[in-house]
């Protein structure tokens, strides 16, 4: 392997067909085709629609990535692909394509964990990952707090959501407020425009007894119900629903809990670097609040730019490159797609 191996990464765990090319920690290209518009009218990702879209987008996205990076596919030194967690049918399109690449190029294949890839991607922007670090990964599919001792072999889950993912709560509240799918960016904007927090929505798993059992876990279903009740009461009284006001107060409740627990995790583990990732990490309030709170305790916060927070192939390539650099063993060709791959498994 060359010093800066050229690694191609494929991501198809949900509704984005992503292909990234990375040389060492240098991002060459991040090509993404999204089927999000096809899901919008259903208010959520429809697995079969996503899988069909992945199949159609796979080869064109591979070609576009190579073209934009100015590399020939034959120059690729290793192929990495998300093996899980995610939607099985969607994962399988990427995994099968990655295997065909590995076979036809005669290069090693790494079937990697999607969450570890979210952690690795920051290397492409802010240089080598600080290890250990605490990672807060929040999206429509996951809400996890991880302690990362070694992103290629040692990731320990500290907590995760016990019901809805944070991004799911954003989508559901957006729907209640008549905002489009996916809800995150619209809630962020409406909240920013309104500018203040006036409604005291509940913060799940932050009270004394809950904290004992679920110190680093999240729960957003109670919050979602509280928002729905509040909106319904308004509707019943015949008054218009103040979209910005509800959005701002809801968003604050989510960000408050996420950042509180993330900073608590850093302090309790004696870790001074906090990394944010996942689609919800693109939320402006989450970033601001995390920095403000971490700063008070001398904790550094790293957040990749929004395009790298959402699902993409570059993050998979970034992890693949790190696996190559650290000499980790590659996957076998009978690598399965594992919809519930545990975060403790980095390479399948």
């Amino acid at each position: 392997m060359p010093d800066e191996p050229l690694v191609l990464g494929i991501e198809t765990s949900c509704d984005e067909t992503g292909v990234g090319l990375v040389a060492g920690t240098r991002l060459l290209v991040d090509a993404v085709a999204s089927s999000v518009d096809e899901h919008a009218r259903f208010g959520g990702v429809v697995p079969e629609v996503a899988s069909r879209a992945h199949l159609e987008a796979m080869v064109p996205t591979l070609q576009r990535a190579c073209r934009e990076a100015g590399v020939a596919i034959a120059d690729v030194d290793a192929v990495a692909v998300t093996a899980g967690p995610g939607l099985t049918g969607a994962l399988l399109v990427g995994v099968a394509s990655a295997k065909a690449l590995a076979v036809s190029l005669g290069k090693p294949l790494y079937g990697v964990n999607h969450l570890a890839a979210h952690v690795s991607v920051d290397q492409l922007e802010h240089g080598r990952l600080p290890e250990p670090c605490i990672a807060l990964l929040v999206s429509g599919g996951h809400s996890s707090l991880l302690e990362v001792a070694d992103v290629t072999s040692g990731v320990e889950p500290l907590g995760s959501t016990i019901d809805d993912a944070a991004g799911e709560a954003f989508d559901k509240v957006a729907r209640l407020l008549g905002l489009p799918f996916p809800g995150g960016p619209y809630i962020d904007r409406a909240a920013r425009e309104y500018g203040e927090v006036t409604i005291d929505f509940p913060r799940g798993l932050t009270s004394g007894r809950d904290l004992q059992r679920h110190r680093f876990d999240f729960s957003f279903s109670g919050l979602k119900t509280a928002v729905a009740r509040w909106v319904e009461a308004r509707e019943r009284s015949g008054e218009p629903v103040p979209v910005g006001e509800v959005a701002a107060s809801f968003q604050e409740a989510v960000c408050d809990v996420l950042t509180q627990k993330a900073v608590d995790a850093c302090r309790s583990r004696g870790v001074s670097d906090l990394l944010l990732g996942g689609g919800v990490a693109a939320n402006s309030r989450l970033r601001a609040l995390a920095e403000e709170r971490a700063d008070r305790h001398g904790i550094r916060v790293r957040v990749p730019r929004p395009g790298l927070c959402t699902d993409n192939g570059a993050m998979v390539a970034a992890l693949g490159a790190e696996l190559v650099r650290r000499g980790r063993p590659a996957s076998a060709l009978d690598l399965p797609a594992d919809s519930s791959m545990p975060v403790t498994t980095i390479v399948a």
């Binding site: 079969e48 199949l55 796979m58 399988l92 099968a96 036809s104």
Partner: peptide, 19 residues
């Protein structure tokens, strides 16, 4: 069945592209 079907088709398309 769609899932298996796609495995074959994406494999064929990818091989064809690379080769």
């Amino acid at each position: 069945p769609f899932t298996g079907l796609r495995v074959g088709v994406v494999t064929a398309r990818t091989l064809a592209m690379v080769l």
